[in-house]
């Protein structure tokens, strides 16, 4: 009999499921990829076969213009892979279509979270705690200083600022997949029913969310409107456009950014952000450590992020953990 868990092998370019000859979120093209969610650092193009949720596959199709090899798996559905490996896709609460993948083989259970959060998000179903032997987690915000405030507080900050400056606009930098739509949906939930203006790069993803039943209210494109139309409005753009020449067409914008990194004052200053909104689609320190306690695995593997601190936490709590030193997963804008 093979050594325990020898069938699952972390490599620099992804987690290799050996008997199935499949890779989880590989950062290079492979024959068979199991993809947790649609962010570009996890979902690359060019795989022979891509196993993912229908939402994730739609996002990938939007990005890479192809459905070749797409194999959809619904939440809760189990798919049998080669070599006697079962894969079940479970909600991760990160973005539309995001999933944890439970792998079962020879009586051993491994969960790979991809990216996740524990807060409610109107654009995707919540993270489900799934007991397992090995829990492979992210640690993007794996430092005790990260504590994401309730999103309602951040929405109130945004709407207060908007109201105080009716002749200006608030330009919110938000990741084009997930963050942007969540911010819009939360604004709607907070009672903001005015049209929201979009940078052109946001449009297709927002339409795709709508196709999957997420209501985003009235959206308009900045390109279709005059400066004066946008006074007193919220405008959403990718973070890269915040200090770009593009923003000159806006009416005296107040620069905001929706990101977990905004917690640290100088990070916000570095990006010339005047209104930092601490909003993240990743687990903060409390969520990460609570999740590990609830899942209660024999061992935690940490794919990427601030792994040193999370390793230290495991040591302090007499838990086993190792860092995988994966390359290519980093999310400067989240």
């Amino acid at each position: 009999m093979a050594a325990p868990f020898s069938w699952i092998r972390p490599e620099p370019h992804g987690v290799h499921v050996v008997p199935a000859d499949a890779w989880i979120d590989p950062s290079k093209a492979v024959d068979r990829a199991l993809v947790t969610h649609g962010h570009a650092d996890h979902a690359r193009g060019g795989h022979g076969q891509t196993v993912a949720t229908p939402e994730t596959l739609a996002i990938m199709e939007l990005r890479y213009n192809t459905r070749d090899g797409a194999t959809p798996v619904e939440y809760g559905e189990t798919i049998r892979l080669k070599g006697g490996v079962d894969a079940t896709y479970i909600p991760a609460g990160h973005v539309l279509g995001s999933a944890q993948i439970l792998l079962e083989h020879a009586g051993e259970r491994v969960v790979i979270t991809g990216d996740y959060k524990r807060r409610a998000d109107p654009t995707c179903p919540p993270f489900q705690v799934t007991p397992c032997d090995i829990f492979i987690t992210e640690a993007t915000f794996g430092l005790p200083l990260f504590s994401h405030p309730p999103i309602a507080d951040e929405m109130a900050k945004l709407l207060d600022r908007l109201e105080a400056h009716p002749d200006r606009c608030v330009l919110v930098g938000a990741y084009a997949l997930g963050k942007a739509q969540r911010v819009i949906a939360e604004l709607r939930a907070a009672g903001h029913s005015q049209p929201i203006y979009l940078h052109g790069a946001m449009e297709k993803m927002c339409r795709l969310y709508e196709e999957f039943g997420v209501d985003l209210g009235e959206l308009r494109l900045v390109a279709d409107h005059e400066k004066d139309d946008m006074r007193g409005s919220i405008i959403i753009s990718p973070p890269s456009a915040l200090n770009d020449r593009w923003s000159r067409r806006l009416p005296d914008p107040i620069t905001a950014m929706a990101s977990g990194w905004m917690r640290v004052r100088q990070r916000a200053r570095q990006r010339n952000v005047e209104l930092p909104l601490v909003i993240s689609d990743h687990a903060d320190w409390e969520e990460l450590t609570r999740t590990i306690q609830e899942v209660d695995p024999h061992e935690t593997w940490i794919t990427h992020g601030r792994e040193e601190a999370l390793l230290r936490w495991h040591q302090l709590h007499q838990r086993r953990a190792r860092a995988l030193a994966m390359v290519g997963y980093e999310d400067e804008d989240d």
């Binding site: 430092l143 005790p144 200083l145 004052r265 100088q266 040193e308 601190a309 230290r312 302090l316």
Partner: peptide, 24 residues
């Protein structure tokens, strides 16, 4: 009040003792 290793890692990330302490 805080584990010294976690303190140092956080302080390194933030780059400011007062701010790190205000968080932790």
């Amino acid at each position: 009040r805080v584990d010294p290793v976690l303190w140092s890692l956080s302080r390194d990330f933030v780059g400011d003792t007062a701010e790190t302490a205000s968080f932790l």
